[in-house]
Design a protein around this nucleic acid. Structure first.
Ligand code: FES
Ligand code: FES
Lengths: 145, 145
DNA sequence: TGAACAAAAGATAAAAATGTCTTTTAATAA
DNA sequence: TTATTAAAAGACATTTTTATCTTTTGTTCA
């Protein structure tokens, strides 16, 4: 098992790709995005529809249409994407699947995993969608392969 | 998405339950385990068959039979269970699903998630199957609800 | 206007994870 | 030895996740 679902992996990579293009003033089509992050085009389309409905990204139809992202959305944390796609089980759920994570009735891993969960949330909350644009432009960071 | 698959959650809870009973010198049947960790009995049976084949736990058939765990297995780290069930994607895979996690071709989250991955491994490697027995006996820790 | 373009929406399909049922095998004890 | 017990094994079913296909809606531009 990976940390995120496949859907969420695609979602984060795609949003970062769109963000990167958006700061260059370019709207980008689904075909381009799918190629840019190496994901199945039609599946990704579904994911982006969902993110668009939820207001994380924007889109326009027709010629010269495509996906883009507003400056205010650029400032949103990555945790917003994760929460929209995978929910918040990663941030609040019990590591061993107990119905309720709590210090009152803790599972054996409670203390140590609470710290890890908090660190995961911290990383995803501190880093915004726009955080990585410079390194993406410079080709230091990768979204495919 | 949770950190572990449902299968892995059941596996860890069940192994800790068996370990707890084993240190009391008791072999325990599938029905008892399933009740003790609140999991579907027949699904858990499949999981334990697998762990038994892989040598993490032991079993005997017939009257007074059931599952138990050897002292040497009690000393094995929890990471062995996770690796047996979920593989090692959690420990070595790219957070964003790139085919290969590497510092040469890093995804945007590489550095920060490498640290988190290492911490997860650390926790699971330091804690053995037998680590929690005392607190389980004392009822301080919980494996169900 | 209307032709072309591109995302949205809805319907299916395939694969993987989770859960259940039935039969078989092995151990124990009477 | 035979009956009973309990796990192992194999087959099957359901649900969720991932992926694809088709039709519709909205936008742009000639
Ligand atoms: S109770 Fe399991 S992580 Fe908190
Ligand atoms: S490349 Fe993504 S976590 Fe290392």
């Amino acid at each position: 098992m990976a940390i995120f679902s496949k859907t969420c992996e695609y979602a984060i990579r795609a949003v970062l790709y769109i963000a990167h293009k958006s700061t260059l003033g370019i709207k980008v089509g689904i075909k381009d995005i799918a190629a840019g992050i190496d994901s199945p085009e039609l599946y990704l389309a579904k994911i982006l529809q969902d993110l668009s409905r939820k207001g994380l990204i924007n889109s326009v139809k027709g010629p010269n249409g495509g996906f883009y992202i507003s400056d205010t959305s650029l400032a949103r944390p990555l945790s917003d994407i994760v929460e929209a796609v995978d929910g918040n089980a990663l941030f609040t759920g019990c590591a061993l699947g107990l119905k309720q994570c709590s210090a009152v009735n803790p599972c054996p891993l409670h203390n140590q995993f609470k710290a890890i969960r908090d660190q995961i949330y911290q990383v995803l909350n501190v880093n915004t969608i726009g955080t990585f644009n410079e390194e993406l432009v410079n080709g230091i960071l990768s979204l495919k392969k």
